[in-house]
Amino acid sequence: MNIFVLMKRTFDTEEKIVVENSRVSDDGVEFIINPYDEFAIEEAIKLKEEHGGEVTVVTVGEEEAEKELRTALAMGADKAYLINNEDVENYDQSSTSEILAAFFKDKEVDIILGGNVSNDNGTGQVGPRLAEKLAIPYVTTIVGLEISDRKATIERDVEGDQETVEVELPVLVTAQQGLNEPRYPSLPGIMKAKKKPLEVLELDDLDLDEDEVEGLTETVDVFLPPEKQAGRILEGEVEEQVAELVKLLRTEAKVI
C-alpha cells in the first residue's frame, strides 16, 4: 500500500503566543509535529503494519522541519520529503495545497492522511483542497478506519455524533482526536531514523514558480484576543440571583 502523510511543524501547545510587529514571533519557541498530524502518522504506520507497503511523510515548510520529519521516521515512517517554501512571500493554505498537488502529480497513491486542522492557523483547508485538486474523495475528522479489498470503512466525528462512510481507494482522510494514541518513537527507531531517506525539494524540482503559488488571502492585521475580564459572583437568594442574571444577560451582555 502506498501510504502518504501530510505533516506540519507547529508551535508546541504549551508555548505562549507573542505578537510583535503584527506577526506572531517564533523567537525561542519549541516546535512539535502538529498533534492532529501525529494521529495521521500513527494511523499510517498501523496501516502499514496491517497491510504492508510504505509510509511517506511530506511537509511543506522551512528547513528546520527536518527535525519533525526525523521524528516521524523514528516513529516508523519509511521516507520523508521536505518541500521548501521559504521563497514564497505571501503564503497561505492555497499555496500549500498547490505545492502538494504538484508533488503528488507523479505519485501512486492509495491513501493520504493528514490532520483535521493544524493547531496554529486551524483552517482545516489543506487536506480537502488537495483532494479536490487530485480529484479523489476525502473524508474529514475521522476517528476510525478499516481497509479491506480497496474499500475504506471510516467512522467520522460529526460534532459529537458519529457517521460511518464507505469509500473506494484512493482517498484522502483527515484525523480527529480519538483516532488512536500515537506511539513514542522507540530508541532503535530514533537511531535508525538518521539512515532513512529524507529528500529536500525546491519549488523548481516540482516545476513550480513562486508566483504560481502565491497565497490568495491577505493578512490585514494580527492581534491577540482581549484579556479575559474577571468574572462576577452574584449574591443573595437563588431566585434573586436568577432574576439578576436574566437582567444582566439582557441589559449588559445583550445576548437575550
Binding site: K67, R70, T71, A74, Y184, P185, I190, M191, K194
Partner: peptide, 15 residues
C-alpha cells in the same frame, strides 16, 4: 545531535 534531542523529547514525554 538530532538523535540526542529526539531521545530527550521522547523520554520526557514518556516520563
Amino acid at each position: 545531535s538530532k538523535e540526542q534531542e529526539m531521545t530527550r523529547r521522547m523520554v520526557r514525554a514518556f516520563a
